[in-house]
Simulated assay, not measured.
Amino acid sequence: MNVLLWHVHGSWTTAFVHGKHRYLVPVTPDRGPYGLGRARTYRWPDSVVEVTPDELRRADVDVLILQRPQEWELAERWLGRRPGRDVPVVYVEHNTPKGDVPNSRHPMADRDDLLIAHVTHFNALFWDTGDTRATVVEHGVVPPRATYTGELDRLAVVVNEPVRRWRVTGTDLLPRFAELAPLDVFGMGVAGLADRLGLPPDRLTSHDDVPQERMHAELGRRRAYLHLCRWTSLGLSLVEAMTMGMPVVVLASTEAVLAVPPDAGVLSTRIDTLLAGARRFLAEPDAAARTGAQARAAAGARYGLDRFLGDWDRLLEEEACASR
Score class of each variant (00 low, 15 high):
V248C: 14
V248Q: 12
V248A: 12
V248F: 13
V249P: 07
V249T: 07
L251S: 08
A252F: 11
S253R: 15
S253L: 06
S253T: 12
S253C: 09
T254W: 08
T254L: 07
E255Y: 13
E255H: 10
E255I: 03
A256F: 07
A256K: 11
A256C: 10
A256V: 06
A256N: 12
V257T: 15
V257K: 01
V257P: 08
A259C: 04
A259I: 03
V260G: 00
P261D: 08
P262H: 10
P262R: 14
P262N: 09
D263Y: 01
D263R: 15
G265N: 11
G265Y: 11
G265F: 11
V266M: 08
V266D: 01
L267S: 09
L267G: 02
L267H: 10
L267R: 11
L267P: 10
L267N: 06
S268F: 06
S268N: 05
S268P: 00
T269I: 11
T269F: 11
T269R: 15
R270A: 12
R270P: 04
R270Q: 12
I271K: 13
I271T: 14
I271F: 13
I271C: 09
I271A: 05
I271V: 15
D272T: 02
D272P: 07
D272A: 12
D272S: 13
D272I: 00
T273L: 08
L274W: 14
L274F: 14
L274S: 08
L274Q: 13
L274I: 05
L275P: 07
L275W: 13
A276P: 10
G277A: 13
G277S: 09
G277H: 11
R279V: 01
R279H: 12
R279Y: 07
R280H: 09
R280A: 10
L282Y: 06
L282M: 12
A283Q: 09
A283R: 15
E284C: 00
E284I: 03
E284V: 01
P285Q: 13
P285D: 10
P285M: 12
D286A: 15
D286F: 09
A287E: 07
A287T: 09
A287Q: 05
A288R: 01
A288K: 05
A288T: 01
A288W: 09
A288L: 14
A289I: 08
A289W: 15
R290V: 03
R290C: 05
T291A: 08
T291G: 00
G292H: 03
G292M: 03
G292D: 04
A293K: 08
Q294Y: 08
Q294W: 14
A295M: 13
A295Y: 04
A295F: 12
R296D: 08
R296W: 01
R296T: 01
R296A: 14
A297F: 03
A297H: 08
A297N: 01
A298R: 08
A298V: 04
A298P: 03
A299T: 05
A299G: 02
A299I: 02
G300L: 00
G300I: 00
G300T: 04
A301V: 05
A301H: 02
Y303A: 02
Y303R: 02
Y303H: 04
Y303V: 02
